[in-house]
Amino acid sequence: VEVSPDIYQQVRDELKRASVSQAVFARVAFNRTQGLLSEILRKEEDPRTASQSLLVNLRAMQNFLNLPEVERDRIYQ
């Protein structure tokens, strides 16, 4: 799965849209901590040159964001 270069903005938009914390998003989207998500968003590494471990996390976030909005909102509950 190709990771979109605007994945970082997509995540920020989703945090605002759903009014969820980084901690909640990190847990449900890719089963990691708020600290890691914060670092990923701060660095904004180009997905095309990202490490394998970062790509795994970015893909998981993208797959989560590809779910229908209704389903994502249900998962946040």
Results as ranks from 00 to 15, higher is better:
49 T>L: 12
70 V>C: 11
45 E>P: 10
13 D>T: 15
54 L>V: 13
20 V>Q: 05
19 S>I: 09
7 I>M: 09
37 L>Q: 02
51 S>Y: 04
32 R>F: 12
60 A>M: 11
62 Q>G: 06
51 S>T: 12
42 R>H: 07
22 Q>K: 11
14 E>K: 02
66 N>S: 13
29 A>D: 02
28 V>E: 05
4 S>H: 10
72 R>V: 00
46 D>V: 05
52 Q>C: 07
3 V>D: 06
52 Q>V: 09
40 I>R: 01
72 R>I: 01
75 I>N: 04
55 L>V: 10
23 A>N: 14
14 E>I: 01
26 A>S: 14
72 R>L: 00
57 N>T: 09
26 A>Y: 01
15 L>Q: 04
18 A>D: 05
62 Q>P: 02
17 R>T: 02
33 T>F: 05
64 F>V: 04
64 F>R: 02
13 D>Q: 15
75 I>C: 10
37 L>A: 03
62 Q>L: 05
49 T>V: 12
64 F>N: 02
27 R>D: 15
74 R>Y: 06
65 L>R: 00
41 L>D: 02
74 R>A: 11
25 F>G: 01
54 L>R: 12
15 L>K: 00
19 S>K: 14
55 L>S: 08
58 L>W: 01
77 Q>C: 03
57 N>Q: 12
69 E>P: 12
72 R>K: 08
4 S>R: 09
54 L>C: 06
72 R>W: 01
29 A>Q: 01
48 R>L: 12
21 S>C: 06
32 R>N: 10
26 A>W: 00
5 P>Y: 05
65 L>N: 02
23 A>G: 14
13 D>H: 13
4 S>V: 08
20 V>D: 01
15 L>H: 03
35 G>H: 14
66 N>W: 09
62 Q>H: 09
16 K>M: 08
38 S>Q: 14
29 A>N: 00
77 Q>E: 14
22 Q>Y: 14
50 A>D: 03
45 E>Y: 07
44 E>D: 05
77 Q>Y: 15
11 V>D: 02
37 L>H: 02
37 L>G: 03
22 Q>P: 11
35 G>Y: 11
55 L>C: 07
36 L>W: 09
5 P>K: 12
44 E>G: 11
37 L>Y: 03
61 M>N: 02
37 L>M: 06
47 P>Q: 03
19 S>A: 15
72 R>G: 00
50 A>M: 05
36 L>E: 15
1 V>S: 04
21 S>P: 07
50 A>H: 02
68 P>E: 12
46 D>R: 04
30 F>H: 01
69 E>D: 09
42 R>K: 11
77 Q>W: 03
66 N>P: 00
56 V>N: 04
29 A>L: 13
18 A>T: 13
71 E>Y: 04
4 S>L: 08
53 S>D: 15
17 R>L: 02
56 V>D: 10
1 V>Q: 12
42 R>A: 13
61 M>L: 12
55 L>E: 08
22 Q>E: 13
63 N>E: 13
26 A>I: 02
76 Y>D: 00
44 E>V: 06
21 S>W: 01
60 A>V: 07
6 D>E: 11
31 N>W: 02
23 A>C: 13
44 E>A: 10
8 Y>L: 04
42 R>W: 07
5 P>G: 08
46 D>S: 10
37 L>I: 10
15 L>A: 04
29 A>T: 13
68 P>N: 04
38 S>F: 06
3 V>Y: 04
51 S>R: 09
46 D>F: 04
5 P>E: 14
67 L>I: 11
27 R>I: 05
57 N>M: 09
2 E>L: 13
54 L>Q: 08
63 N>V: 09
14 E>A: 01
20 V>I: 15
37 L>P: 02
52 Q>H: 10
37 L>F: 06
44 E>K: 07
42 R>I: 07
26 A>L: 04
30 F>S: 04
68 P>C: 07
64 F>C: 00
60 A>L: 10
18 A>L: 04
39 E>T: 06
20 V>G: 02
13 D>S: 15
61 M>I: 13
10 Q>S: 12
62 Q>W: 05
43 K>I: 07
14 E>T: 01
9 Q>I: 15
41 L>W: 00
33 T>M: 05
4 S>E: 07
32 R>M: 10
75 I>M: 14
22 Q>N: 09
15 L>G: 00
34 Q>N: 08
67 L>N: 09
73 D>A: 04
42 R>Y: 12
54 L>D: 09
51 S>F: 02
40 I>Q: 01
7 I>V: 05
39 E>K: 08
47 P>A: 05
18 A>Q: 06
23 A>S: 12
72 R>P: 02
15 L>V: 15
18 A>N: 14
60 A>P: 05
33 T>A: 09
14 E>D: 01
28 V>I: 05
4 S>T: 09
28 V>Q: 05
30 F>M: 09
61 M>F: 05
66 N>L: 14
48 R>Y: 08
32 R>W: 08
68 P>F: 03
67 L>F: 06
75 I>K: 13
67 L>H: 12
22 Q>D: 10
56 V>T: 13
72 R>T: 02
31 N>E: 09
39 E>V: 04
26 A>F: 03
54 L>I: 05
6 D>Y: 07
22 Q>G: 10
46 D>Y: 04
5 P>V: 09
47 P>R: 02
53 S>P: 11
70 V>W: 08
44 E>M: 08
21 S>K: 05
52 Q>E: 10
